[in-house]
Computed example of a mutant assay.
Amino acid sequence: MTARVLEILLTDRCKSLDLKRKAFETLGTILSDTSSNDEIDLGGFDRTEIKTMFDRFEYQVDKRHSGSVIRTKVGLYVEDTKNVWLDSLEPIGYYELETDFNGEILDDYFVIEKQKYVDDIAIVSHFQNMNKILPLGYLRRNHIQYELVAYISLVGTLFISKQFEGTGRFIKRAYTYLETTDNSRLDQNYLKESKSFLKMMKSYLVRNNLVTEGLKEELQQE
């Protein structure tokens, strides 16, 4: 049997079991469940933003601890506003329906691989760059830098947790600290990176309307 013949047989099997329909129906139920936004993690994306497209069938046979399975994979995409991805669709995750070769559903997986806003700003990379120039002594509670380091850390932590209002509040506190502290006593390299980081975060929160109007006005004054 040639590889092409085997491919045709497997594809015909999937069609006869109507696996695409089963996968899209189950996924549709997940995405249409509006009872609570906390029911499923969409990575910060709105349900209406997510587009679904069939990606492929995968086959696993002669598994050591279970029988053979067919995996029907549906890609999750959002519109690519930067025109980088194929067909202007940026992948953010996938849905996978696992069945046996008789079409009996064994399991399914809903996976979000990209976080809206968090991945967009590459905040982890910024933290890594800042930590490279952060002397360990500044982590001592009695050090002049400690308060600023704490504010910067909370800005990043809250942003990653999508607590955007809290992020903005600690950006404001960091600016207040810098305004009331003799900046010449601070490490100048870390100070420069901190100011750049705060400006970037402030602009991002304001531009994407991620904080309340009152806080937005306060941040715009900085």
Rank of each mutant, 00 (worst) to 15 (best):
L139R: 04
F197V: 08
Q188K: 14
T176P: 02
R169S: 08
L139I: 04
A174M: 02
F197T: 04
S194G: 06
G166N: 11
L154I: 15
Y190G: 04
T167F: 02
R140S: 08
V149P: 00
L191G: 07
K202P: 03
E147I: 09
T181C: 04
F197M: 10
G168M: 06
L186N: 02
N183A: 12
Y190M: 14
Y146A: 04
L154M: 09
G168L: 06
L198A: 09
F159D: 00
R173Y: 05
Y138M: 07
R173L: 04
M201A: 15
I160P: 03
T181W: 00
T157W: 06
S196D: 14
L198N: 01
K199C: 10
Y177H: 10
K172C: 10
D187C: 03
K172G: 08
Q188V: 02
D187Q: 07
N189F: 11
V149S: 03
I171M: 07
Y138H: 07
Q163I: 14
L139H: 07
K172N: 08
Q145R: 01
S196L: 11
L148R: 00
T180P: 01
L154D: 13
Y190Q: 06
S194K: 00
D187L: 02
I144Q: 08
E165M: 14
L158P: 07
K199Q: 12
V155R: 03
E179H: 14
M201P: 00
A174T: 07
Q163C: 15
S153W: 09
L139K: 07
R169A: 09
L158A: 12
H143L: 03
R140F: 10
L186G: 03
I144R: 05
K162Q: 10
G168T: 12
S153K: 13
V155G: 01
S161F: 12
S194C: 01
Y190H: 10
R141N: 11
L191S: 01
T181E: 03
N189K: 14
Q145W: 02
Q145P: 01
K199G: 13
K162I: 14
R140P: 01
T157D: 09
I160C: 10
L186W: 00
T181P: 00
S184E: 04
T181R: 05
S184Y: 08
F170S: 06
N142G: 11
Y151D: 01
I144A: 05
A150E: 09
K202E: 08
E147L: 06
R141G: 04
A174I: 07
N142M: 05
R185I: 10
I160V: 13
N142V: 08
Y138V: 14
I152G: 01
R140G: 05
G166I: 06
Y177G: 02
Y138C: 04
N189A: 13
S196K: 15
